[in-house]
Design a protein around this nucleic acid. Structure first.
Lengths: 240, 240
DNA sequence: TGTACATCAGTGAACGCGCGTTCACTGATGTAC
DNA sequence: TGTACATCAGTGAACGCGCGTTCACTGATGTAC
């Protein structure tokens, strides 16, 4: 069923058994993208793709879950690299937020099954009770840290206000990007032809809306919000 | 494994075979919520829960996929009802958007596996090639129609501007609510203790940000957006 | 009013499948002497 | 320089499992006469 040619391979030399591990990882990653369903990737298929017998997988990974965890780790690193590369192309903090979001979205659209694996699964607990690749892992990473730092620079620049919480803003932007792109993946055709344009719109709306919240107060739900907002915008300055 | 007592049941009378169908549906729905993984719900388990033999399921559903599709339909109706009920409690169109979003979010948090089934799955094609519960089905429904109508009323009220597209705005609000709540489901602990508060924040940000886009122009990406935004807000009127 | 029969809801047992995982094994490779 | 041996990467075959689905069947029920 899998079209891998399974070329004959030479076994690794003594002490070089670790050489097989990255090959297994890459095969699992590739199969996941091809099959389009992480659950449907079998240990057998991965072994066949690598050109090795099935039990060999167990020399490098404790079980299937450990293999999938390793793939997660790999994918996560790819996603974070894409975001950091994108952010490095601008000095403007607000634009940096937008570029990060667009890189995030582009990664998800280009690698839907990988994105799904790390971001759209229900959390399964480790044997140790830890949730792999949960909130804590993400928030502890350098990419998330850079994101909140960029938000802080937006506060410093006067886009957001000093009383706003950079963590909450970062999470909100993350939710906006994730919401747009995961909806595009789950419900194709949404937002018309240009899915990236929809995502850009959603990300921009969230980024700007957070600024509005900074001006209106955090939980401002007046009795007639439509009238209050209409009045606010009626007095707003003309834009360039 | 499933704790259903499987009380002895009487067979339906002649011509009343259809009576079993809703019971099967309800059992499948309940099992899904309990197990927390739609894929792990087996036809056998559903039959056992109903108190009927496994082949009986096939008298009412062509195959397992048809059963899951029927559950989807049911869940979708629940979700839409929750949103319409929530929206009915206000006359204000902007507040109506927010209440719809909060009802959506609350439904997802209360029924995580059901929400996941209808909104977080990769689209699987029907035997006929149609995507069940895809964008087209949702957009054609009355709930989505009411949502865009509420957006139109926001335009009429001066919250959004006449040149903005109600469909795009509706989709953006949907993406925001979905993004916030699906992130909460997939990465527990995000947004701190109160997940609903985070969702409210994200929904509000999107709703307000769309209004900002209406004033700034649809794809306004100036060279130094931070400075431009800071200038805009520096001139903005004081808020109540 | 009684009975033979067609209908139809529901069943017991089995089929074949692919899966994760294990076990006893092979044979190449480096090393000690 | 030659050889016995320990090490270690990798294997072939099998285990047991739960799954979706099918098939020939049973037996209660309503109906025609």
């Amino acid at each position: 069923m899998t079209t891998a040619p399974a070329r004959p391979r030479r076994r690794a030399r003594r002490g070089e058994g670790e050489r097989l591990r990255p090959e297994i990882l890459a095969a699992a990653k590739a199969l996941m993208a091809e099959i389009g369903d992480a659950d449907a990737v079998s240990v057998r298929a991965v072994a066949e793709r690598v050109g090795v017998s099935t039990p060999s997988i167990y020399l490098h990974f404790a079980d299937k879950a450990a293999l999938l965890d390793a793939v997660c780790e790999d994918v996560f690193a790819d996603l974070e690299r894409a975001m950091e590369d994108a952010a490095a192309t601008t000095e403007d903090p607000f634009e940096g937020l937008r570029l990060r979001g667009m890189a995030y979205v582009a990664f998800a659209i280009e690698n839907p099954e990988h994105y799904r694996l790390v971001m759209m699964r229900m959390p399964g607990q480790d044997h140790s009770g830890r949730i792999p690749f949960g909130r804590d892992d993400i928030v502890a990473g350098t990419t998330y840290h850079q994101l909140t730092a960029a938000v802080q620079r937006c506060i410093d620049a006067g886009v957001y206000t000093a009383d706003q919480d950079p963590e909450l803003i970062a999470t909100t932007l993350w939710a906006a990007a994730h919401g747009a792109v995961s909806l595009v993946l789950a419900k194709p055709g949404i937002g018309g032809e240009d899915a990236m344009a929809l995502c850009d719109y959603v990300i921009s709306a969230a980024g700007l809306g957070v600024a509005m919240i900074g001006r209106l107060g955090p939980a401002d739900h007046p009795e007639h919000p439509s009238a209050a907002l209409a009045a606010f915008f009626a007095q707003a300055p003309p834009t360039t």
